[in-house]
Amino acid sequence: MRALQLAFRRHLDTTPSAYLRRIRVDVPREELSWQYHDEYGKPPDETLRR
């Protein structure tokens, strides 16, 4: 297990648990952005700039 943690730290500069947390947040956020774009015809950040 320690070897896995060291490999993550060396190659991704993070721990396995931090990587999974990031994936769990980033994937739904991207999907939500695409759904917003499909619904309103522009990305959410463009709406926020107004």
Rank of each mutant, 00 (worst) to 15 (best):
P43S: 12
D26H: 07
E39I: 06
L20A: 09
L32I: 07
R9M: 00
E31H: 08
R29P: 00
R22Q: 11
P16F: 02
L48R: 15
P16R: 07
E46G: 00
T47W: 14
P44H: 10
V27G: 03
V25C: 02
Q35L: 15
G41V: 15
L32G: 00
F8R: 00
V27I: 14
K42N: 10
Y36M: 10
T47P: 03
E31Q: 11
A3M: 07
V25Y: 03
G41L: 12
R22Y: 04
W34F: 11
P44K: 13
E30T: 07
W34K: 15
R29T: 05
L48Q: 15
Q35R: 15
S33Y: 06
E30Q: 06
L48D: 14
E39K: 12
P28D: 01
E30A: 09
A3C: 02
A7Y: 07
K42F: 08
L4R: 11
H11D: 01
L4F: 03
I23A: 13
D45Q: 12
Q5M: 09
Y36K: 11
R9E: 00
R21Q: 09
R50Y: 06
T47D: 15
V27C: 12
Q35S: 13
S17D: 13
M1D: 02
R10Y: 10
R21V: 02
K42G: 02
R22D: 02
V25D: 01
L12T: 01
R24S: 12
I23L: 13
P16S: 04
M1N: 05
D26A: 14
L4D: 04
E30H: 08
E46W: 09
P28G: 06
